[in-house]
Simulated scan of single mutants.
Amino acid sequence: MSPGTLPEPQICGLLAKRLRFHIVGAIIVALGVAASYKFGVAEPRKKAYADFYRNHDSMKDFEEMRKADIFQSTK
């Protein structure tokens, strides 16, 4: 190779090499996003619903709404 000349470009296997790199990166990013959603959103939401329904009295809520005249059919 003489000074001032560029090296031969890689032609064979370039797409496969780049795809392998990007697919692995995409899988890692997707798993990270899925894990952060599960532990940052889904689990706290499930816990909040469980805490709410643990002590929830639907008949008490119904009676409060009936007394406030929210329902037209229960007067």
Rank of each mutant, 00 (worst) to 15 (best):
S2P: 11
G40Q: 10
T5H: 07
K17N: 05
L6S: 12
A50G: 05
P9L: 09
T74M: 12
R18L: 14
P7C: 03
P9K: 03
T5K: 09
A26Y: 10
A16K: 08
P44N: 02
I11S: 03
K17L: 07
A30P: 00
A42D: 11
F62S: 06
T5L: 12
E63L: 12
V29M: 11
P7N: 01
A42K: 09
F52G: 00
I28C: 05
G4P: 01
E63I: 11
A16E: 14
K75Y: 01
A34S: 12
K38H: 13
K60A: 15
Y53M: 00
P44C: 05
M59I: 13
K67E: 14
M65S: 13
Y49Q: 13
D69Y: 06
Y53L: 01
P44W: 10
F62Q: 10
A68G: 03
R18T: 11
A35V: 15
A50E: 09
N55W: 05
K67I: 02
F52R: 13
K60F: 08
Y53K: 01
K38W: 12
F21T: 14
V29R: 06
A35D: 10
G4D: 00
K75V: 02
G4K: 01
V24Y: 04
D61Y: 03
R66Y: 08
T5E: 11
A42M: 09
A48Q: 09
I27P: 00
D57H: 08
R54N: 07
D57F: 04
E43T: 13
V24R: 09
Q10L: 15
K46C: 11
S36Q: 05
K75D: 05
F62W: 12
F71L: 09
L31V: 13
R66K: 15
P9S: 03
P7R: 03
R45C: 09
T5R: 07
L6E: 11
F71G: 03
L31S: 05
F21N: 10
Y53R: 03
V33A: 10
K60T: 12
K38E: 10
Y37S: 06
A42L: 13
K38F: 12
I28N: 03
R54L: 14
A30M: 05
Y37F: 14
D51L: 13
P44A: 04
D51V: 01
K60L: 13
A26M: 14
P9H: 02
I23Y: 04
H22T: 04
G13T: 03
E43M: 08
V29A: 15
C12G: 02
